[in-house]
Design a protein around this nucleic acid. Structure first.
Lengths: 352, 352
DNA sequence: GCGCACGCGGTAAACGTTTACAGATTTCTT
DNA sequence: AAGAAATCTGTAAACGTTTACCGCGTGCGC
């Protein structure tokens, strides 16, 4: 594992200068004879170009970072699955950051852009603070944000429309005759938490339903806590007949609790999740869910970034990906053979 | 976004040499007065150390790569979820490679180690070819392989024991009274495919069951193909009463088809998956699955690599993670309220 | 046959750090 | 207070590339 050959080693061996070696290696016009000698020497030595030195000189690393709250979250994974191949095809490596939604960690990632170890960044923050905006304004490399940022923030931005998403779900539940529709939400100080809470109220109002505050439960975005919130809800509001859950994990937690409580889904209580992750299609019963287009947001974000890396000096772009409702057994009523649950989840996945 | 400050800028501003700046920045012993001046200048300029230049000189990048077949596969994700925090805690960034199980891509990753853009690599190849072994022997940075490599390969290695895993599952099915146990396997030219096929035969033999070749079906490791293999099987061997599936995705495909065919699970046909992914706990009915310890293999791999990066020049290590069977509704018989499906999957996951 | 243009290829200077070495300063000893 | 010892800091050389610039040699035109 001794020190590998450099262009100096090759130059020596081929009897040419390092400049010529570099030229040959980069395919710049060179006499055939020289090309031959250099190639031969490089082959014999098993030369591999040092990416670090190259980056230092060229000021490009061919790396892009993706920062998300949590590697374990299926919604981010859906993005990752799209981002990875797009970047790879364009010749970039992907550096992963999992920030656990800790603001300090996210700021740190933004700060570390100054280290120039990546050419660009895709970030999906759960909360957007003033510190975020400051760092974004001063960022030393192109950044694309997946999620909502305040109007006027000068940064490329791909957003979901969870407001319309919630609307779709609530309307659907209403059309099934449900009138006691609860919301199981995540923290209100997160962007999605706030948006979904507001959208829920708005949707109820437009439908002429009273907004009973006891129907709203706040927990976090994880499965166990989702379950707890639902248990609490059932105790206080026994006549609830539908649950709008702020994400799929919460909805799965809800299904666990409903089952344990002997409530039939969807006959007694209909349940809708959000994000339409793989888990929704696989769950028991399969879960209706609002797709916020995680996958598409990933693709778009990667494309926006690539464009920016290609040198585009255009105005910041903002793309909104429209949501759609995927109806499955948890709202579709009984009598279904479940076959609608089979389609969505197969995607990809090789053996272990 | 103009060129940021370098230590030269700071040196000038602080009226000291670049050597002093570097020393202050690295916390080497320096006079208080100098420290103060340098820090002040660095702060004012918003200096951030250039990671590339630093890497060139120090010959360390503080990056580690993880190469897996497919970002979308839950088994690899379970590894990723463990690897990421371990490396992060040790100060390393994670570079992700998705090779789609294409041998050429994997070789390429190994080759690119020579570019020295990472300090080490964790790789989980589906197949291990001669080319792999050659590249491994010549690797210019420490590598840890997750998966099986031939005896005597000089590389740190974390393996699952899918042979014992299959044994656990088959014994379990046998103890439930099943005697027509089919195997739905992936390609035999993959390491796991081969191992699981062999283990299945061995297990049947030890139980004194005849090995009926029509009970063995080969597809790929994906959900739709798993379904197709099962459809085929049901047509040829209608009296099958148990399915041993080579991974969870195949098993989910099997559940889809069984449901469509009107076979009750587990009453008519019991199903066991493998890998114990999140999907198993969430599926309908929840899926018994053999855990091959993906998460633990990830942790161990990361730790082995870190040890090696710390400079350990010890003999290559081999760690085998023991499997265990997680029994859920798909083999547990009817009458279950499903609550056993609730525990395992909640793990982590923040809102979208 | 001389000079000019042109194509190649070599020299050297970057890129932004770290660090060995030696020179400069301070601090201590006596 | 002078010399030795200890501390600090500056100069310069790396790390492995890319690339601007210039000189050399060939081939061509006149």
């Amino acid at each position: 594992m001794g020190d590998g050959p450099t262009i100096n080693t090759i130059a020596e061996r081929a009897g040419v200068s390092i400049a010529s070696v570099s030229r040959v290696l980069n395919g710049l016009p060179t006499r055939q004879e020289t090309v031959r000698k250099v190639m031969a020497a490089a082959d014999e030595l098993g030369y591999v170009r040092n990416a670090v030195a190259r980056s230092l000189k060229s000021r490009r690393t061919n790396q892009v970072a993706f920062a998300m709250a949590d590697v374990g979250n299926p919604a981010y994974l859906a993005m990752l699955r799209q981002i990875q191949p797009v970047l790879k095809a364009a010749g970039y490596r992907l550096v992963l950051h999992s920030t656990d939604a800790v603001v300090a960690d996210e700021i740190d990632v933004l700060h570390s852009l100054g280290e120039r170890y990546v050419d660009g960044l895709i970030m999906s923050p759960l909360r957007v603070t003033g510190a975020h905006l400051e760092m974004l304004a001063a960022a030393r490399a192109p950044v694309v944000i997946i999620g909502s940022v305040p109007e006027g923030t000068r940064v490329d931005n791909v957003r979901a429309d969870s407001r319309t998403g919630v609307r779709l779900a609530v309307d659907h539940l209403y059309s099934l005759g449900r009138r006691r529709i609860a919301l199981i939400n995540g923290p209100l100080d997160t962007v999605p938490g706030a948006a979904r809470g507001a959208a829920y109220r708005e949707a109820l109002e437009d439908l002429g339903l009273p907004c009973d505050e006891s129907l709203v439960r706040i927990g976090d975005f994880y499965r166990p806590e989702g379950g707890r919130a639902v248990a609490d809800l059932l105790a206080r509001v026994p006549d609830v007949d539908a649950l709008m859950c702020a994400n799929d994990l919460i909805a799965l937690g809800a299904l666990d609790v409903l089952r344990a409580a002997g409530r039939r889904v969807p006959d007694d209580v209909a349940v809708v999740g959000m994000d339409d992750t793989d888990l929704a299609a696989a769950s028991w019963p399969s879960l209706s869910s609002v797709s916020l287009g995680s996958a598409e947001r990933g693709t778009v974000a990667a494309e926006l970034l690539l464009e920016r890396l290609k040198g585009g000096e255009h105005e910041p772009r903002r793309v909104t990906v429209p949501p759609h409702l995927v109806v499955r057994a948890s709202t579709a009523g009984a009598g279904h053979d479940g076959s609608q649950g089979a389609g969505g989840a197969g995607k990809k996945g090789a053996g272990s």
